[in-house]
């Protein structure tokens, strides 16, 4: 039982990381129908921004984080202009390929600028964690879980309670109609890119103390986050969160009770199972084409 609880806690912590990255994925899918294969690199770039602000410029930790998040927003807009804007009328595949190109570019340009040495960042808290009964609660996993909860609440507030959120929703549901209603669709999409980059960057900053900061760190997470999206229901925000958590728990339990070397296979087997049995995911709508 103690082992089960420990695995469950860790699974949730890992799952929260997937969920955070998946959240950034979902927003872009909804607003711009873009599957962003560079979402993992958003996390990597965010973590390096924090490294530069905190380790190099030696700003206070929270100031560094805030500054990095703002910079990520700017980065998201630039990213949209380069990889999405020129291709926005050409369907999904060209944008997918251009985001793949961007992911290669980002990893290598960071490698050139920062060098290959992995960097270490401290966590938000000095204590590594504490013991609750049989379970050791890693403070960074806890911070990630709390951050995910806060972000979900914030996102709910923005999307459901503000005018900006209404406009964003209108844009994601029907671009033509939205633009007829005078909503600046282009602006909404750029905002979504900025927000998605901020989320991705924040995910990178939060996992940095756990995974260390290296150019390859984003790629580790992004594929699982994408899988989490599908398990949760393609384009569904609660789906992304629950899909991420479910994936994290499933693979940690799978590794704990069945086989460690095949750990990654559990995530993908779970995904395949979902695709075969319930392709719309936990929260998705039925897929059908109108005649």
């Amino acid at each position: 039982m103690a082992i089960f609880l420990q695995l469950l806690f860790t699974g949730l912590g890992i799952g929260a990381i997937y969920a955070l990255v998946a959240l950034g994925f979902v927003l872009l899918i909804r607003a711009a129908s873009v599957v962003n294969f560079a979402q993992g690199q958003f996390a990597m770039v965010g973590a390096y921004m924090l490294v530069v602000c905190f380790n190099v410029l030696e700003l206070p930790y929270l100031v560094s984080m805030a500054l990095s998040v703002v910079l990520m927003g700017l980065f998201g807009v630039i990213f949209a202009f380069v990889t999405y804007w020129p291709l926005r009328h050409r369907g999904g595949l060209p944008v997918i390929i251009s985001t793949i190109g961007a992911s290669i570019f980002l990893e290598n340009i960071v490698l050139v600028l920062y060098g290959p040495s992995p960097a270490v960042l401290p966590g938000l808290f000095d204590s590594p964690g504490f013991q609750v009964g049989p379970v050791f609660m890693d403070s960074q996993y806890l911070s990630i879980l709390v951050s995910v909860a806060l972000l979900v609440a914030l996102q709910y507030f923005i999307f459901e309670k503000t005018l900006l959120g209404k406009k964003l929703q209108a844009t994601s549901q029907d671009k033509e109609m939205a633009s007829l209603l005078g909503i600046p669709v282009a602006g909404m999409i750029l905002f979504t890119f900025a927000y998605s980059a901020m989320l991705g960057g924040l995910a990178g900053m939060l996992v940095a103390p756990v995974l260390f900061v290296s150019v390859g760190m984003g790629g580790l997470i992004a594929l699982k986050a994408f899988a989490a999206n599908i398990i949760g229901g393609y384009g569904s925000i609660p789906g992304a969160i629950l899909g991420g958590l479910a994936l994290g728990v499933a693979e940690t339990l799978g590794a704990g009770y069945i086989s460690v070397p095949y750990k990654d296979a559990f995530a993908f087997a779970m995904l395949l199972m979902f695709l075969m049995v319930r392709p719309q995911g936990l929260f998705g709508e039925k897929i059908s084409e109108k005649a």
Binding site: A227, I230, F268, L275, P279, I287
Partner: peptide, 27 residues
Amino acid sequence: GSLRLGGHYLAMVTISFQQILTLVATN
């Protein structure tokens, strides 16, 4: 797998297949 799925779903099925195959070849 394409019986019921298209587009991004199918892409994800193929990615999963790819990953599982790599793990099998390794382990």
